[in-house]
Design a binder for these strands. Structure first.
Lengths: 335, 335
DNA sequence: CTGAAAAATGTAATCGATTACATTACTCAA
DNA sequence: TTGAGTAATGTAATCGATTACATTTTTCAG
């Protein structure tokens, strides 16, 4: 491996000049720039990033706090993050938290100890909130994506959950459904709240007050969806359509209901949220909301780099819109 | 942030002694060790890893080459890798390659340029093969996991594909099926070959030569499974059971067949491979092979660190066994 | 042609650890 | 008590970049 010294010697200049041609070419004359570039090429030189990082006290490392890597929605978000990170020389440290606060805090401490430059948090919690920030002036760079806090102590990247659910609910009402059900995500999640409000807004608006909504408590796992099927089956007045707050729960729910000989969508229609790859191959194909998951990740990473490099100071809020994907799991109700 | 100098001053010793208490405590007397440890605690000191890396010319970064992050099987493997990496201070750089050789080569070059310490390759290709290793003595550390090359130029972590398919095929034959089909992975993949051989071995063994096997060419995507349903439906003599080389293709195939009014498993039984989370919620629940995906990842990372730290020089081959998960997608044939 | 200002380049300190080598302290047999 | 051998500690070079400051070169108005 050749170092900046080798290049300097080879080009007959000082190391400072080499460094400058790399980092601020405008501070160097045309001629020397060319000869240095030639030397770099000939020696196949790449700056040692560790040395640069030491000097500039960066790490070029960011941490992504994700509840569960295997969740297909999150893997797409991660894909977007990786994607952008790779283009600008950052490496990504995946921190799987299973929503455990202790783990989140441990990761947060890594950026305080300068083991990483910043954090992308995919849950609704400020990872630094419980840590006493000594006489540090600036709060560490982090962005909150996907599942976001209300307060804007950090930049936020999210979808319009309210509108998304409104679209979906309207679609279902248009199909003639009157008794709706919803399988919620975890109670404390703002996501759950926003999405629920989206549904409720449509019901309130309805001219006749004839619409009802039964709520079932899920936790975003397919298993919870399967469990809820019992509850649904034994409801005194079953809903004719159930909205699940993600696709996995819809899979579990559909499976559970079918086992009880309830026909989907004939007896009960079901919708999901996320549009994971397999949603189209569900039986029946799942009506759902498509999120721009890769874009969410890419944008989160982009904003984080801006935070880190102090390019942009103010707290952005990026809101993406979603798309309703109507498939066969919601049926038309006659009359 | 406090540095090793601060600790040295605070404990009244030299930086060398501090470094030694951290890295080789046995070279330091009981007393000084204690006082240094006290100082470390009081100053809340963590060694700056960038500085250490520069000095020791490590990066503590490894690259994972993965065809597709969103594939649930791979995300579990990655989970295992991350898991082990976190315990020993490595950060993981995900390189999504979509099987493009150029991308793989770019990543491989990163380790030659000392931007990373090693590679875990989840496809059957030596990432360094096309790169002229200058007068480098030792080949760079890498391990081949999941989908592995035959030759052992590197350590290998895999499952026993042959045996796994043998288990699955035997199960299907025991259920009375005689005409089998298989949806293959990409032709060039050793995985496809090994698994195919596992199936064939059972058919050869059968006392009567009455078993047949129709092969369909897939590519591991659920989409390809859906496409193949046309082919299957128009086969002159349809197989009564079809083995898909992963669960996604099984999802696509089942969906496609159902659309053609073919009943699963009544008309055609279908099996998958991997046992992804949603396999149990498929309709019908998917008979499949469970891979120890997280363990595969953890082990791959463990072996890689050994390669990097030269703890272990010889080329390990770790082979994991799998488990047949019988569900309802394979039915009993009354003969 | 002169010299002040601007541009280009060079020198050397620095980031924070590790570690070879030098020095000092300790142990214990004779 | 002595001194050889060992254990403990310290000094300072080093990894490979960046960059403040110093120095040299160039530019150009007068």
């Amino acid at each position: 491996m050749s170092s900046i010294k080798d290049v300097a010697r080879h080009a007959g200049v000082s190391v400072a000049t080499v460094s400058r041609t790399i980092n601020s070419p405008n501070k160097v004359s045309e001629d020397t720039r060319k000869s240095v570039e030639k030397a770099i090429l000939e020696l196949n030189f790449t700056p040692n990033s560790t040395a640069r990082d030491l000097r500039t006290s960066q790490t070029r490392r960011v941490i992504v706090l994700v509840p569960n890597i295997s969740n297909p929605f999150f893997s797409n978000v991660i894909k977007g993050i990786q994607n952008y990170a790779n283009t600008c020389g950052y490496s990504v440290l995946l921190g799987e938290t299973h929503n455990q606060i202790k783990l989140e805090r441990d990761y947060a401490n890594m950026v305080l100890r300068r083991q990483a430059d910043g954090i992308i948090q995919l849950s609704a919690r400020n990872p630094f909130s419980e840590i006493k920030l000594q006489n540090e002036k600036a709060p560490p760079p982090w962005v909150n994506a996907c599942e976001c806090l209300g307060e804007t102590s950090s930049p936020i990247v999210k979808i319009d959950n309210y509108q998304a659910m409104k679209d979906l609910t309207e679609h279902i009402l248009e199909k003639g459904h009157k008794r709706l059900g919803v399988v919620l995500g975890p109670q404390e999640s703002p996501l759950t709240q926003e999405r629920l409000e989206g549904i409720l807004s449509c019901l309130d608006d309805s001219p006749e007050q004839s619409h009802s909504l039964i709520q079932y408590q899920g936790d975003f796992s397919s298993h919870s969806g399967a469990l809820i099927s019992h509850e649904v089956a034994s409801s005194p007045k079953r809903p004719t359509a159930i909205i699940c707050m993600n696709d996995e729960m819809a899979f579990g729910l559909i499976h559970g209901l079918k086992q009880k000989n309830i026909k989907i969508p004939h007896d009960i229609s079901v919708a999901g949220f996320d549009d994971i790859e397999l949603a189209q191959y569900c039986d029946p194909p799942l009506t759902t909301i498509q999120q721009p998951s890769i874009d969410l990740g890419r944008t989160a990473m982009k904003i984080l780099t801006q935070q880190i490099e102090r390019t942009d100071q103010h707290n952005t809020i990026a809101t993406f819109s979603t798309q309703l994907i109507p498939r066969e799991s919601i049926r038309q109700i006659e009359n």
